[in-house]
């Protein structure tokens, strides 16, 4: 993959720079002049009421959603309309969806092997070794040859995490990874994410799991109506939110 616009040898501390980004869906403004920087190794939890733009924001980071204005730079590559740039960025950005989005016609192992083989160009056996390694890490290696529909929701989400990790991304995006899960399965997925965070992975998570935010987040970013209206360390944010909007939000989700 050509590192298109990386020219200087200096590696900036930020892996993701979002500058003045706007995104509209018809008349609805999903993101209104959002600026966010993510440092390497940083863990950010994005929260806010529904429709506040948090999912849209992380979906813009790997260009699943196209921003209308502003700049997004991921690992030194600016996201424009150049397909080569977009694909090279996507290789470095892993994403986990609310609805898992595993490929149902491929086995668990094949789900994990597809992109490394076809995009990274590694060999079949190397891809399989890597897949089994990461499946072991998410504690699901004995299901490697099953199909997604044969697994529970929690297992499927852990496969989805392993699938994203198989590309050896520099940053992981989580879009409400536990929202579609039965309560008893939330824990197993969160444990996997905590482990990943402790290994130093850069993470941006959209989640309402405040326990998770407390445990791993370096920063909580609170969004409302397409704007970032509060950013703080988790302890500060939960104990003493500055804005009324955040207070009201926290009151609602804690009960």
């Amino acid at each position: 993959m050509p590192q298109a616009t990386v020219s200087n040898a200096t590696r900036p501390a930020e892996i993701v720079v979002v500058e003045n980004v706007m995104k509209r869906f018809g008349a609805f403004t999903a993101l209104n002049d959002v600026t966010l920087k993510v440092d390497r190794g940083e863990k950010i939890v994005l929260c806010g009421p529904s429709g506040s733009g948090k999912s849209t924001l992380i979906r813009c980071i790997n260009h699943i959603e196209k921003h209308d204005a502003g700049r997004i730079i991921v690992d030194g590559v600016e996201l424009t309309n150049r397909i080569a740039d977009i694909n090279s960025v996507r290789c470095e950005v892993g994403m986990v969806f609310q609805s898992f989005n595993l490929f149902p016609h491929l086995t668990v192992a094949e789900n994990c092997m597809l992109a490394p083989i076809k995009v990274r160009g590694i060999s079949q056996s190397e891809a399989r070794d890597r897949a089994l390694d990461l499946l072991r890490k998410v504690r699901i290696q004995d299901q490697a040859d099953k199909y997604p529909a044969q697994l529970s929701g929690g297992q499927q989400q852990r496969v989805a995490i392993a699938r994203a990790l198989c590309m050896q991304p520099k940053i992981m995006l989580f879009d409400e990874p536990t929202s579609a899960l039965d309560p008893e399965m939330v824990k197993e997925v969160l444990e996997t994410m905590v482990e990943l965070a402790k290994e130093g992975m850069t993470m941006v998570c959209v989640t309402h799991e405040m326990g998770f935010a407390r445990e791993v987040a370096d920063r909580v970013v609170f969004m409302d109506r397409g704007n970032i209206i509060e950013e703080a360390e988790p302890e500060t944010f939960f104990r003493d939110p500055r804005t009324e909007r955040a207070k009201a939000f926290l009151n609602q989700i804690i009960h």
Partner: peptide, 10 residues
């Protein structure tokens, strides 16, 4: 489609 895109598949 989104998952495939997110993995960098062309």
């Amino acid at each position: 489609l989104e998952a495939a895109n997110a993995l960098g598949l062309s």
